[in-house]
Amino acid sequence: MDDRLRETLSAMMDDEADELSVRRLLSHGEQSDVRAQWQRWQHVRDLMHQGHAPADAVDVSVGVRRALAGQQDSAMEARLATGVATRNWRWPAVAMISLALIVGFGAGAGWDSAAPDNGVAEYASAGATVSGSPASDPVQEVALQGLDQEQWEHLSRYLLEHAQHNSVGAGRGAVGYARLVSASAPAY
């Protein structure tokens, strides 16, 4: 792996890589080297930030490729599910989030700003927990934005009804109403 690739990898960590460089990185012959380097750096960074190491041996390249290809992999969908206008995003943010998700160790400081989504990395953590327990499979994500009008309405009804259980009648004060109002907000 030459210095230029290393530089790209480093830039990715700082959320500053451009798409071309990342494509170059992904097409590099020695993907295992790239992965190893990425993991080492993440390791170091994580130790510096958190005092513990992230999950080892996670291959994020697939997710990155998908992000590049604009496919809706689970990470993307999860983000879509939060209703973020993705088109306006700089690519690195997209890839970073995918990475954060797939690697599942949260995000470093540089990614914080790149993740205005809510459930996504969160979801990753939940997913990590899931995979940690042998009995269950990872949970498949459905993008709310992928729903058509009828499906959304159907879903809305569930959300509302659930909110109802906990709001108006439940005597839980203002907070209960808030969820209800939120649930009755127009479709994404």
């Binding site: 999860a78 599910a81 939060t82 809510n118 459930g119 969160e122 979801y123 949970v139 498949q140 994500e141 459905v142 993008a143 709310l144 992928g146 729903l147 009828e150 499906q151 159907h154 879903l155 569930y158 959300l159 009804e161 659930h162 259980h165 906990n166 939120s182």
Partner: peptide, 21 residues
């Protein structure tokens, strides 16, 4: 809290899986 809804599948085909808000 969570609510469980059990219904006959209607004419609306819903995707299966999890969504989050």
């Amino acid at each position: 809290a969570f609510s469980v809804f059990v219904e006959r599948a209607g004419r609306i085909a819903m995707p299966t899986g999890a969504s989050r808000i």
